[in-house]
Amino acid sequence: MGRYVIRRLLQMIPVFFGTTLLIFLMVNVMGDPVAGLCGDRQCDPATAARLRAEFGLDKPVWQQYLTYMGNVFTGNFGTAFNGQKVTELMATAFPITIRLTVVAIVFEIVIGISLGVVTGLQRGRPVDTGVLVLTLVVISVPTFVTGLLLQLLLGVKWGVISPSVSSEAPLDELILPGLVLASVSLAYVTRLTRTSIAENTRADYVRTAVAKGLPRRRVVVRHLLRNSLIPVITFIGTDVGALMGGAIVTERIFNIHGVGYQLYQGILRQNTQTVVGFVTVLVLVFLAANLIVDLLYAVLDPRIRYA
C-alpha cells in the first residue's frame, strides 16, 4: 500500500510539470496581455515596456516558465494586473468554491445514490421508469437553463431566495447553486448506481448473504451497495475536480466569486499569473482526488489489493 502510494506520488511529478507547461504555453499563445490594459487606446510605449519588464513578459517563454515554477515552489504565485497577489485571490476564491463543491457533492451522494438504490432494487417498476425519465430530462437540459430558470422562479417571481449570492457566500446561500451545479452529475450518479445495483442483486455474495438470513437492510447496505459503489466513486472522484474548475457557468449566474469566476476573468484579461496559478492548484486537486479514489477501491472491494 505504502509503496503504491509513493509510486503514484512520483508519477504525479511529470504530470504536474506537463500540465502546467501546457497551460503556460496556451496562455502565452493568446498574445500580449499588456495591450489590453489601456482600453480602446494604445498604451504609451514607455509604460507598456516597463509593465512588460515588471511582469517578466519581455523574456523568452521558456525563461518565463522556469522563473514562474521557481517562484511557485517558494509559494509565490505572482501578482495579478490589478496589483493583487494571486495567493490572495486564491485565499478568497478557493474556500467559496470548496463550499460550493461540498454542497454539490453532498447532493450527488445523498440524492443520487439513494435514488440509484431505490430504482436499482425496483427495476422495471413505475418508480424506476419515472426516475429514469427524470434523469434523462436533467441530463439533456443545460446547466445555464436550469440555473437561470430556478433563479427567475425562486429569486424573482416567488422571492424565496436572493437571486445572487453575497460576496461572503455563506453555506445556506450556496444550496440552490450547489443543487444546480450538481444536477447533471446527480443524474449520472443515479443511473450508474442503479445499473450497478441491478447487476449485483444477482451476484453470488448477495444470494449467500440472503441465505445466511441477514436482515434486508444489512444485505443492501453492507454487501450490495458497497460493492456496487466502485463505478460511482470513480465518477464522483473525477467530478470533484471538474466541479471546482468547471463551475464557471453556475458561478456567473449566481454571482459566486469563486475559482470559475477568477479563471474566467483571468482569461478575459489574459492574466497569465492568475490562470496558471489557479490551474496549477486545480491540477493538484485532480491528482489528489484520483489517488484517493484509487485507494478507496481497496476499501470498498476487499478483493482489490495494492502491492
Binding site: 447532493f107 445523498v110 440524492i111 425562486l154 429569486g155 422571492g159 424565496v160 431566495i161 436572493s162 455563506p170 445556506d172 446561500e173 444550496i175 440552490l176 443543487l179
Partner: peptide, 14 residues
C-alpha cells in the same frame, strides 16, 4: 432533503 435545501436557502435570501 430538497425541501429543506430550498427552505434553508430561503432563510439566506432577502
Amino acid at each position: 432533503a430538497v425541501a429543506v435545501a430550498l427552505a434553508a436557502t430561503a432563510c439566506g435570501g432577502g
